[in-house]
């Protein structure tokens, strides 16, 4: 309890620092997620449509997936240096695989009969993609985003290691100073953010799946 009070009073006394860290954390995660989505969703669609390059893309993605998040952060450092940008790049790379894989699977799993029936009604490829395939794939895609979001929000903590800022700063300082209250100032909000994003995307997922039998 004392630790918690310590953390809260630290936040009250250092409002600006805390808010700044929180905002950076949100910016890092949000941007990484957004860019990651914009890159990997189209890639997922392309992979699903073209059998020849799909194996290439998918094995590359699976390769990336086994690299731990800290390793990615450390690996971008020699190339991009330290600070916000390299952190963002690293987190974006982290965000991609779940979205890409789920988009790929989501599109692949759309029933051939449904596509044929759409073609039979004279829809062209574009219509079929936007009106049929993507909506049908969206529950899976969103569950990919959900996974990515949790991963990115928690990994953004590590950005502090390469000077990216964010809530991880408190954790590193707390560890360094043996100040567990300070550690909580970083850890608690990260946990809460992760849970909130999980809840938020679950709701969105439920909503896009509303047509399934309830």
């Amino acid at each position: 309890m004392n630790l918690l009070f310590g953390a809260i009073s630290y936040i009250q006394n250092n409002r600006q620092v805390f808010e700044q860290a929180l905002i950076t954390h949100l910016e890092l995660s949000g941007l990484a997620l957004l860019i990651g989505f914009c890159v990997s969703a189209p890639l997922g669609v392309i992979a699903a449509k073209h059998a020849r390059i799909s194996t290439m893309i998918m094995s590359a993605v699976n390769g990336f997936r086994v690299i731990p998040s800290l390793a990615i952060l450390v690996l971008v450092m020699p190339v991009l240096g330290t600070g916000f940008m390299p952190s963002l790049v690293a987190l974006t790379i982290l965000a991609c695989p779940p979205v890409l894989i789920n988009t790929f699977l989501g599109i692949k799993r759309v029933d051939g009969e449904v596509i044929e029936s759409a073609e039979g009604m004279g829809m062209d490829r574009r219509w079929i993609l936007w009106k049929i395939e993507l909506p049908l794939a969206s529950p899976l895609m969103i569950s990919g985003v959900r996974t990515a979001a949790v991963e990115v929000i928690s990994s953004a903590t590590l950005a502090a290691f390469i000077g990216g800022g964010g809530l991880g700063t408190f954790i590193i300082n707390g560890l360094g100073l043996y100040n567990f209250a300070l550690l909580l100032v970083g850890a608690l909000p990260v946990a809460i953010l992760a849970i909130c994003s999980e809840l938020l995307f679950s709701l969105v997922e439920r909503w896009v799946k509303r047509y399934r039998k309830t």
């Binding site: 009969e113 449904v114 029936s117 909506p135 399934r212």
Partner: peptide, 13 residues
């Protein structure tokens, strides 16, 4: 065109 096995779009009303 009515396909063998209906083929309605499940995500649409």
């Amino acid at each position: 065109y009515v396909i063998q096995q209906v083929g309605l779009f499940q995500h649409m009303t």
